[in-house]
């Protein structure tokens, strides 16, 4: 049977690379955490979710300004250490636990500034921690299967909710997304609208591509590799055109789990 450990290390390494960039980006926005910024501490404290408030208060010293700088620096350091350790051997459990815990605090603090990719990264890291902490001989295997299932669930959900809407199928929504400054780029919008059918076909490629990619972990290895390569290309193009850079790391981190699952299901 294929050993799970190298695949788990690859998941942790890619995830931590994303966590490293994510924390650097937050550090770049340090002014937003100051008293006049949009991520002002007192604003974060007014959150409605009751269960979060005690955690925020408990870690107030590192979540409020200027303590947040220490927390962000710790995230950068632990992420970097995870990347280095994953390259050369198993990631120490304590280091991974620190990386996940700091990431969790940051997500609680900046939840409204984070997107689905950040949450996917957070879930992947937490699942790796559960797999590493568990003493079970099959913990790594179970963890990687779980990540494969999450990956499939993500692609399938994303595709199904789009298929169900006629404006996704006819390309209108894709055109309108690229018509925004937030997610669009002028050149991409012009390419998409240069011919009447282009947006419709581009939209369908996205939808059916996502639908196919959800099968990657459960396909024979050569099919899985092909699907994941297409998915990687898709995420890179989304990162380049829409500026959603964290999606590249969030999903790429789960790809080793998909390869592992495929190799276990279709040995030889």
């Amino acid at each position: 049977m294929t050993a799970a450990e190298p695949f788990l290390r690859a998941v942790i390494g890619i995830n931590a690379a994303g966590g490293f960039i994510s924390a650097l980006e937050l550090l770049r926005l340090y002014r937003a955490f100051q008293n006049e910024g949009l991520f002002f501490w007192k604003g974060a404290q007014l959150r409605r979710r009751r269960a979060v408030r005690p955690i925020l208060n408990l870690f107030r010293s590192v979540l409020a300004w200027p303590g947040i700088l220490a927390l962000l620096s710790s995230r950068i350091a632990t992420a970097l250490a995870c990347v280095v350790c994953a390259c050369f051997g198993p990631v120490p459990t304590l280091l991974l636990a620190a990386y996940v815990a700091i990431g969790c605090l940051l997500l609680l603090r900046t939840h409204h500034a984070a997107d689905g990719a950040e949450q996917f990264m957070h879930i992947t890291a937490a699942a790796c921690l559960v797999a590493v902490v568990s003493r079970g001989s099959l913990a790594g295997e179970i963890g990687l299967f779980f990540l494969s299932a999450q990956l499939s669930l993500a692609y399938a959900t994303s595709a199904i909710v789009k298929i169900a809407h006629s404006d996704w199928r006819n390309g209108r929504f894709l055109t309108e997304i690229f018509a925004t400054e937030t997610f669009g780029r002028r050149w991409a919008f012009e390419v998409l609208t240069a011919r009447p059918q282009r947006a419709k076909w581009a939209s369908r490629v996205v939808i059916y591509g996502e639908l196919l990619c959800c099968l990657a972990p459960w396909s024979p290895p050569h099919v899985a590799w092909a699907l994941l390569a297409a998915a990687a290309l898709f995420h890179i193009s989304v990162g380049a055109t829409m500026g959603l850079n964290m999606f590249v790391f969030a999903f790429a981190a789960a790809f080793p789990a998909a390869i592992y699952t495929s190799r276990v299901l279709y040995p030889g």
Partner: peptide, 24 residues
């Protein structure tokens, strides 16, 4: 589930669906 998932460990994967943001 909203109350249970206060650590954001259960995600919604509807990326841009069903109705995406189409304004700035």
């Amino acid at each position: 589930l909203y109350k249970l998932d206060f650590l954001y460990l259960v995600g919604s994967w509807r990326f841009f669906g069903p109705e995406p943001l189409t304004r700035d």
